[in-house]
Write a protein that binds this DNA or RNA. Structure first.
Lengths: 342, 342
DNA sequence: TTGTAAGCGTTATCAT
DNA sequence: ATGATAACGCTTACAA
């Protein structure tokens, strides 16, 4: 019966030391491959560690090093494709760099956002990668992090703070989408916007408006309606638009899900897409290829957004105070599908 | 300038003790609301703690208590609706019980599954809630956990181990789905199955076959084709089915995503759904309501699955060796939509 | 009611 | 090249 089968407990550096009749410091040094340790000792330690299936106790390490190598990630929702995909990117980079992630969702609730930060803080995460809720208008909880010198990277849903950020070119994407609708001959173009105090939404709205202006299109102010990104609110917006005095012949939606909702309403009212009304979304979710008709959209490099955010986080950790916040803007691509192929 | 603004470091029990001129043990006791501590002292401690914004250091607590109050969660993929929703349920219960979760995805890769367990183990998670990959055929890594007395709860994708499990009534759901197709008059019913060594898939297949037998339907063996759950493989299966000598007039798919793929292929080949071919899926993803036609499906209480798994985990943690593994089978519901409304 | 001291698993600073 | 020892922040006997 070996040591490990005898007791349930994980093997520690002490066990190895005792078994080898040496001190824990020597074992520690050997394990970490430090110089100034006898090759024979080193080998013996490694062999025994292997044999006993020794796993360093990260909890103890965290306590002494005063850092947990854990990144707190705050997102609005797990079930939104964008965020689940972004997490993939974050985790890939994090694990490669020896970091773990701990993810909390806010459910778009400001209070929950604050609570999540607190929860993660008491777990002593080394810092945060976050996307703010659509409700958040007060950034004190984030400002406090900055003041306390706790690394913070914002992605996608950012706000006006002196921290590294990763976003896509929301303005440019929206501009491209709108121009595309103009190019195919639409004249009464509507926009299903998102929550107004998110930069992301304002930028997409600006891109829409500027594209319209630049191409001398008449802007119908009441053809801009507001959604909360969800399918349901997309449906609501679709219904709203159909009741306007000016009937739109195209819609640019702030995201694919809102577009799905609107599209569904249009079809159920007997409208032909794109003949009667063309639609463009934003994000390029996997299903956008399969909707009927398939959805023209702006694709975002979501995985890369996550990766970039994590890379910036780790750089920030490594460089400490020297690190100068930078905003990385990734580019988007117009994917033309049947919802705009007249 | 107060203590906390002076130094970046988090306030500790020592700081409070020093400031109050008492010992750390008293502070600790006061903070935890233990009896036998002078009400005045207790109040002073609480007030100062509040004022200094003291947050207990969970890392230190974990070290002394030899448990981290963290659950390792292993899922095939973040971006699959089912798992992201299940995580919501898990996290809700976990947070309420003072637990944190640390989620890793396997990407359906067996080696990654093993690696994830290792990673989480070195973080000293208290146990695991897991769904195995579709590749996993060897369960040694899980058996080792059990032997070491580390709590494990399996959900959805389970295997034959003596641990608590949460599943839906896969057999019954499949039976209901198939019977529905029979009821509406289909006679050549195909099944898009999933990876054969997942119980979940075998049970759905059995449910399908039994429903057919019980209703004296002719079973066309080569109308059972295998997918890997993805949209793409659903498309592949759809194409396959159309090439069979016997043309199916209905399909029961192992999951909604595979159904989406098949549906897309059928439509692109000019088939009318459900007139030419009816379709039923499994899971009831949010989008299944919006597909064209909307998808009849078996809805699963995903959030509840997650919650139940977490509840069982916590019960297991609390009861320790006394806990007797139990398998909770949640029921499903047939949601009839247009893909089967002839 | 409160304080002292040991311990959780590790690293780091001195000695030796 | 190696060993003691203190420290990380907290809990917990045991003393007082």
């Amino acid at each position: 019966m070996t040591l490990q089968t005898m007791k349930n407990e994980q093997v520690t550096i002490k066990d190895i030391a005792k078994l080898l009749g040496i001190s824990t410091s020597t074992v520690s040094r050997a394990l970490r491959g430090m110089p100034d340790v006898n090759p024979d000792t080193k080998q013996a330690v490694h062999e025994l560690a292997e044999q006993l299936n020794y796993q360093p106790n990260l909890v103890a390490l965290s306590l002494v090093k005063k850092r947990t190598k854990t990144i707190g990630v705050i997102i609005p929702s797990f079930t939104t494709y964008f965020y689940s995909k972004a997490i993939c990117g974050i985790q890939e980079v994090a694990l490669d760099a020896g970091y773990h992630i701990m993810v909390c969702q806010t459910n778009e609730d400001y209070k929950t956002e604050i609570k999540n930060i607190d929860i993660l803080l008491s777990s002593r995460v080394d810092g945060f990668i976050a996307s703010i809720t659509r409700e958040t208008e007060n950034y004190d909880h984030y400002t406090q992090l900055i003041q306390r010198g706790i690394p913070l990277v914002l992605f996608n849903r950012i706000c006006d703070l002196e921290v590294p950020k990763v976003v896509v070119d929301d303005y440019g994407g929206a501009y491209k989408a709108t121009k595309h609708l103009i190019d195919i001959g639409c004249t009464k173009i509507a926009h299903i916007a998102g929550p107004d105090h998110l930069y992301l939404c304002r930028n997409r709205l600006r891109g829409f408006l500027d594209a319209m202006k630049d191409h001398k299109m008449k802007i119908y102010e009441n053809l801009v309606v507001y959604s909360d990104f969800s399918i349901e609110s997309g449906m609501q917006c679709g219904r709203e638009l159909l009741q306007k005095s000016v009937k739109p012949d195209a819609v640019f939606a702030v995201c694919d899900t809102a577009a799905y909702g609107a599209m569904h309403v249009f079809k159920s009212k007997g409208l032909q897409i794109p003949a009667d009304i063309a639609i463009v979304g934003y994000t390029n979710e996997p299903l956008s290829e399969l909707t009927e008709p398939s959805l023209t959209t702006i694709s975002q490099p979501i995985f890369k957004i996550g990766k970039t955010a994590a890379e910036m986080f780790i750089q920030m950790m490594n460089e400490g105070k020297e690190y100068i916040p930078e905003t990385r803007i990734l580019s988007t691509e117009l994917i033309i599908r049947n919802s705009t192929r007249k």
